[in-house]
């Protein structure tokens, strides 16, 4: 499903170049639950942004479902993010002025779905994450765990093939974090491919495969399916 080959990413930093990713090669198959672990500054977030088509590699190639991402136009990239990839962020990234329901509807809006279809699907997703009675609340009226559930429901709105989570439990207490991880586990059991970024070994342990990244290089890859 995901095939990264010799991916490098560098940013200009003063006179020198800051090399964040160095020759990263990685394959992820359908249905895997992968944790990417590493200390801060190791390049794991950059790797996730590249996988999520939010950022482009400086060199190297990236294939998503046999499509060369580097060859896609901005409109095609937006469509890929909309249809194939769901994002869950550490600080939720919900739009503060919209109700939970409208936040979940947003990807469907960009997909061009009709209003009744959007509403029905958003309601169903929110019920599935246990927020049937919180649909019309604004994000600041919800607890951290509830916000993250809304974010997960939103990420699932267009039935993506890949779920990307960047420290999804980072802003939550242990118990709530555990609930969220159980939710991820359930999604994975139903066939969802999940890539999760964390520096917490306990969180990483929910995954079936753990990749360690240090200084922009993969140093360890355990539990790879079929490997």
């Amino acid at each position: 499903m995901i095939r990264l080959r010799n991916v490098c990413k560098s940013y200009p930093s003063g006179d020198t170049e800051l090399r964040v990713l160095k020759e990263v090669s990685l394959d992820v198959s359908e249905g895997e639950f992968v944790s990417i672990m590493g200390p801060s500054g190791s390049g794991k977030s950059t790797l996730m942004h590249i996988i999520g088509c939010l950022d482009v590699p400086t060199s190297g190639s990236y294939q998503f479902r046999n499509q060369h991402v580097g060859e896609l136009s901005p409109v095609e990239l937006a469509r890929l993010r909309n249809q194939e990839i769901g994002f869950v962020f550490q600080n939720f990234h919900l739009l503060p002025r919209m109700s939970a329901l409208r936040n979940v509807e947003l990807p469907l809006v960009y997909a061009g779905e009709r209003k009744d279809v959007r509403r029905a699907r958003a309601m169903r997703l929110l019920s599935e994450v246990g927020l049937a009675d919180r649909m019309h609340h604004l994000p600041n009226e919800l607890s951290g765990g509830q916000k993250q559930r809304v974010a997960i429901a939103r990420a699932l709105a267009n039935q993506p093939s890949l779920l990307l989570a960047d420290e999804p439990t980072g802003a939550l207490d242990t118990a709530t974090g555990k609930d969220i991880m159980t939710l991820f586990q359930k999604l994975n059991e139903n066939g969802m491919t999940i890539i999760l970024i964390t520096h917490d070994p306990h969180v990483a342990s929910y995954a079936t495969r753990v990749i360690r990244i240090v200084d922009g290089q993969i140093v360890d890859d355990q539990g790879r399916a079929g490997a």
Partner: peptide, 11 residues
């Protein structure tokens, strides 16, 4: 956020 959810530049 909107771009990550699939908003095009035009949108």
């Amino acid at each position: 956020i909107r771009m990550s959810l699939g908003a095009t530049r035009a949108a």
